[in-house]
């Protein structure tokens, strides 16, 4: 049903730490790898080895340059995927009921057997989280690895989304935002986690942690003593003589 649940039991989602993300694209690859063989049809590629490669991805990592009023610019790597919004506009526009938000945990999913591939849900999403698969003709989106997180055939440490499991810097965290004591809730509270495009009224579940404030640049480099090379011998004599002229 495309009517959004008034409230969901859990609010499962991700915290993405923009301070620690190094932009290695491992989450992009892990996501593509898992979702090629997991929930629904595989994520197809078109002309992957040719001159105009293109493909379906559920997670993409951008890189932005932020210029503060004072001080040097910062580079921020920015992973972008479905935010599993509470007021998900992609769900209500769906004419067939293929898009839905789960009452039990708040995950936004697509029932691919009912999807007619009209693309209206992708239009309704401000975040570009949905991509129509060019081979299968159905809408693909992040499932929060619904086929991993509840999968009792996997060792317990693997029961989290592939992107979180693979992140080498621990920049991605998975948990329940409805529980104020969960890791994701505490991280959000401690680090001032924010929503993306709040003006769109989507009430996203996922939160992003801002880059930490960097201290003022050191007045002198800690390497300064090493760089202060004193000339000796003939060069030293020449240095002293020329300095006196």
């Amino acid at each position: 049903m495309t009517q959004l649940p008034a409230t969901t039991g859990k609010k499962l989602g991700l915290v993405v730490d923009l301070d620690t993300c190094v932009g290695c694209q491992a989450c992009v690859t892990a996501c593509k790898g898992w979702n090629d063989q997991g929930y629904g049809v595989p994520l197809s590629d078109q002309d992957p080895y040719g001159s105009d490669p293109s493909g379906t991805f559920l997670n993409r990592v951008h890189a932005y340059e932020v210029q503060p009023e004072a001080g040097p610019a910062q580079i921020v790597n920015f992973p972008r995927s479905c935010l599993h919004c509470e007021a998900a506009p992609c769900v209500t526009v769906c004419p067939t009921g293929a898009s839905y938000k789960r009452v039990e945990d708040g995950i936004v999913l697509v029932n691919e057997d009912a999807c007619i591939g009209c693309g209206l849900c992708a239009w309704a999403c401000p975040y570009g989280a949905r991509e129509l698969d060019a081979a299968a003709g159905v809408m693909k989106k992040c499932t929060l690895c619904v086929d991993r997180i509840y999968n009792e055939n996997l060792p317990e440490e693997d029961r989290e989304p592939a992107c979180v499991r693979t992140c080498p810097t621990g920049a991605r965290h998975f948990g329940d935002f409805a529980d104020p004591d969960s890791k994701v809730s505490r991280l959000t509270a401690e680090r001032g986690g924010f929503e993306l495009m709040p003006e769109m009224g989507t009430k996203p579940t996922n939160r992003y942690l801002p880059p930490r404030r960097k201290g003022p640049p050191e007045a002198a480099s800690p390497l300064a003593p090493l760089l202060d090379i004193q000339a000796t011998g003939f060069a030293g004599w020449l240095d002293r003589m020329l300095g006196k002229i």
Binding site: Q67, P210, P211
Partner: peptide, 16 residues
């Protein structure tokens, strides 16, 4: 869109 506007002006450094 990125929430980084609070820090300063944002521009695309590299496409995804």
């Amino acid at each position: 869109a990125t929430g980084l506007g609070a820090i300063g002006s944002v521009r695309v450094f590299e496409q995804a």
